[in-house]
Design a protein around this nucleic acid. Structure first.
Lengths: 197, 197
DNA sequence: CATTTCGCTCAACGTGTGTTGACTCAACGA
DNA sequence: TCGTTGAGTCAACACACGTTGAGCGAAATG
């Protein structure tokens, strides 16, 4: 009855696994209830581990959050406006399916935890930069910021507030409706490629 | 050196004033740091009052929050789509200036405090109802939800995350850019009245 | 095998929190 | 004027939290 995997693991491997287990539990809890309501004790319990171990691995609750709530930087180098809108919709399309828990954790806390707010602002600023470079023109930055805010609103409404209208609709339809609106915001009204992703 | 107002106030008046003072301090603090980080002690200190008095007046922290974070229901009965979009922009225009602290308090906590989330969902559902009734058509509710999400994103970006692009831009310009996008979402592409508020 | 390293647990400390009950004192009503 | 009411304070409780240091036992190392 003794399987191969019952053989005790090497130290390094064991460490990596428990660290990832803690990090996973932390991501899930931070994403679900935010920074304040997520306790080290609850994270430890979910990971099947003593609270003190969490501290030993990550130093403090804030550092644990910083590690757990990293947002993956979105791709999209110097593209044209239409292509960028298309890609924006594509990632939004993904967003509507399943958003990585790290991003959810950050977004859940961005209105109440100062460091999460900083992360959010940095991520949004990056996206605004990319969009502004593509949009060009008079108030390119404002247009880019508004486009970003539109995506932000849809994401918050869908994943964090869980508005039923957004949860039930198929992602392609959401992208299909949001596409023209984003293009209008970008300053190129109609025409162009189709709206679906 | 004794002014008229130094004469002690009647009990009822005195009670009303301190209650309003506490409520004001609570609104400001809840709006600034959210439900969790706002402590009864801090509210009491800001109101120049003992923490116990806050409990005596409002019963519990949650009830205090419920009283402080009420969102004023927006007007707008059964209007046509264009008029409703115009009014949406007008209130958004106001939103861009100064949002009532009660609404800010609710929005600040809506991602982390369950009861604030319920309030937010209820308020958004009301607005979606109004918009859906005006938009009509196939996926009217989805369109209405997306329009609501757009306004939500702009408000969050401006007042809670304080994105510089949105803070620096004059409200009319924001409304002028968001207007066409909202009209597209509503399903009536171009034309119509001017975009400024 | 002897010794060191290290993943992990246990028990506890200090602090800040929401909340409570007894108390003080000025305004009120008869 | 005298007893009653009620606004407001004071000190404290009970609890949950983040965090710490000592200790245990198994893996690594020679």
């Amino acid at each position: 009855m003794r399987a191969v995997s019952d053989r005790p693991l090497p130290r390094a491997e064991r460490r990596r696994r428990t660290e990832e287990r803690i990090l996973g539990a932390a991501r899930a809890l931070f994403a679900e209830v935010g920074f304040e309501r997520a306790t080290i004790r609850a994270v430890a319990a979910a990971a099947g581990v003593d609270p003190a171990l969490v501290m030993q691995y990550f130093g403090s609750k804030r550092e644990l959050f910083a590690r757990a709530a990293q947002v993956a930087p979105e791709p999209g180098a110097g593209l044209g406006p239409d292509e960028l809108v298309r890609q924006l919709l594509r990632t939004l399309n993904l967003k509507m399916g399943e958003l990585p828990q790290g991003s959810l954790a950050m977004m859940r806390s961005m209105l109440t935890h100062p460091e999460a707010a900083d992360s959010a602002r940095a991520a949004l600023r990056d996206q605004i930069d990319r969009l502004a470079a593509a949009v060009q023109g008079e108030d390119a930055r404002l247009r880019a910021a508004l486009m970003t805010a539109v995506v932000l609103g849809a994401t918050v409404g869908h994943h964090l507030l869980e508005l039923p209208e957004l949860r039930e609709a198929p992602p392609e339809r959401i992208a299909g409706l949001l596409g023209p609106a984003l293009r209008v915001l970008a300053g190129r009204p109609a025409g162009g490629p189709a709206d679906d992703a």
